[in-house]
Simulated assay, not measured.
Amino acid sequence: MERTELIEECPEVSRIALASAGRNRDLWLAAFALDGRIGRMVLGASEPMLGQMRLAWWRDQFGQPVTKRPEGDPLLDLIGRKWEGGESALRELVDGWEALLSPRPLSGTDRASFIAGRASLARALADRAGSPSAAREAQCAGTLWALADLAIHAQEPGERSAALDDAVEFAQDSLRLPRSLRPLSVIGGLARRSLRLGGCPLVGDRLSPFIALRLGLFGR
């Protein structure tokens, strides 16, 4: 039951990517569910201060030893089992999402913080999934993922155009990631497509299921 609840916390693109996770599924599930929960806190916050308070709780938990954290939250418990020692990347993810609580339009610094949070998570996933040599390419996938979300969730035209401009250098070539990082191939590939199409949703159109299937099977 806990796994089902956590899967439901993942954004749709992350749930699709989980199908390619293999033996490290819980590692990916913890990362994607955290990203989904934090993202909903930020995007659904009626007041920035309330969102910041909720994010501060998570940041505090990642600063404590696993044995000092409260028990009973399936996500926090899974993070304790699968991400012990890698919490710095999770804190950067939280920091990145917090930047989106800034006044709009987002500044270049705010956008860079969000991108850095997703890129840091992707690098940490490469390391913890046993493919540290692919960290740079994983970081590129995380950057594409962040830029696509910045374009999709833009609240002003300038935000969308800034994300698309920043994506030019990253969206030229297909990602080349090892099999152990196939979920990043799926998300990064769909994000690259989204950006090349002007910031369309990562999934939901007629072709996206077939592209996701191809990425899951072959990586590109």
Rank of each mutant, 00 (worst) to 15 (best):
M1C: 09
L6A: 03
E9A: 10
P11S: 08
E12A: 11
A17C: 07
L18C: 02
S20E: 10
A21F: 00
G22T: 05
N24R: 15
D26G: 03
L27M: 01
A31S: 10
D35C: 12
D35H: 15
G36K: 02
R40H: 06
L43D: 10
M53R: 11
R54T: 00
W57D: 11
W57R: 15
R59F: 00
R59Q: 07
Q61D: 08
G63W: 06
V66D: 12
K68G: 05
R69A: 10
P70M: 12
P70N: 13
E71F: 08
D73K: 12
L75W: 10
L78V: 02
E84K: 11
A89I: 12
A89V: 11
E92Q: 15
V94K: 04
V94A: 14
L101R: 06
L101G: 06
P103N: 11
P105N: 08
S107F: 08
G108E: 09
R111A: 04
G117T: 09
G117Q: 10
L121I: 07
L125T: 09
P132I: 02
A134L: 01
C140T: 15
G142T: 10
G142A: 14
D149S: 09
D149Q: 12
P157Q: 12
G158A: 09
R160S: 13
A162K: 01
L164S: 11
L164D: 12
D165T: 08
V168W: 08
E169C: 08
F170A: 02
Q172C: 08
Q172G: 12
S174D: 14
L175F: 07
R176H: 05
P178R: 05
R179T: 10
S180N: 08
P183M: 09
V186F: 03
V186D: 03
I187Q: 09
L190V: 03
R193Q: 06
R193L: 01
S194C: 09
G199N: 02
L202H: 04
R206N: 11
L207V: 09
S208W: 04
F210A: 07
L213V: 00
L213I: 00
L213Y: 00
R214S: 08
F218W: 13
